[in-house]
Design a protein around this nucleic acid. Structure first.
Lengths: 141, 141
DNA sequence: TTGATAACCTACTAGCCCGATAGGGTTTTA
DNA sequence: TAAAACCCTATCGGGCTAGTAGGTTATCAA
């Protein structure tokens, strides 16, 4: 299940990416438009800045802006930062691997075999979508 | 993230399916072999019985057995019973649909569009695997 | 210089669910 | 009749989620 943090984070990024001009976008504007708790959104945008997706400017006329082009931002990277591992089980995670306490042999573990397939197909989808693609969906409104 | 309940449940089903004979398998045997807390496993097998995957036989020589052929049990069904929705967001769930409180229009929601793709690819994988396939992985040991 | 604006930071919390434990009850078979 | 095994209920600690609260710092305009 996707956390609200990730959900809101993606929405916020798509919101910023769908803007025509390159001027910074205020947290409050995003919060209002996307129906997100202002304070919660603040913490999300902050972490997106710290992970290098967003830049920020303080004071009047300030806000957040994209550092990279939307076409260059893959959703795999976004999800990993906000949600953590993409895999459904740590033992098949590429970036957050962890051995199962039970399970003596991954090669003959039924869950392992299945979840590798799930992971790969999910990676295909997330890797095949960029922020540009998501912004296009949004712009249709 | 996959819950331990689901993980153990799948492992247990694969264990039973990988058996040559059709005799009932004891909970304690599965628990020991798969390193699962006995009591916890009991509750999982119970729910699998109630959802029609397993039959049970009491008394000496009793245990759990598959009701259907392993080839006929798709992992989509197993996961739905144990884990709940396969979709990462309720608003794209086929069996557990729920409208988002925020998000006035799903058609222009970036998250919605992305998660539909994830859901479909996951469904492909889980629907393409049966208990028979998982049992084969296990048997290699 | 002052005040408004908006990002930034820290701390706290209510509520939920997972994973497990405990303990017993019931049914069936050797 | 006694052991084996399923069946059921209740409880609980810990960790995480989704916030809330309140203040601090940087920037800009008048």
């Amino acid at each position: 299940m996707l956390s609200k943090k990730t959900k809101y984070g993606i929405k916020a990024l798509a919101f910023i990416a769908s803007r025509e001009d390159k001027r910074p976008v205020q947290t409050s504007e995003i919060a209002k438009s996307e129906n997100i708790s202002l304070k919660f959104l603040e913490s999300i945008l902050l972490s997106l800045r710290k992970s290098g997706f967003l830049g920020s400017k303080k004071g009047k006329g300030g806000g957040y802006y994209l550092i990279q082009e939307p076409e260059k931002i893959k959703m795999t990277a976004v999800v990993r930062v906000l949600e953590g591992p993409i895999a459904m089980v740590p033992c098949v995670s590429l970036n957050y691997y962890e051995k199962c306490a039970d399970c003596p042999d991954e090669a003959t573990c039924s869950v392992h075999a299945l979840m590798i397939q799930v992971r790969d197909s999910t990676l295909d989808v997330l890797g095949g979508n960029t922020l540009y693609d998501l912004a296009r969906v949004k712009k249709k409104s």
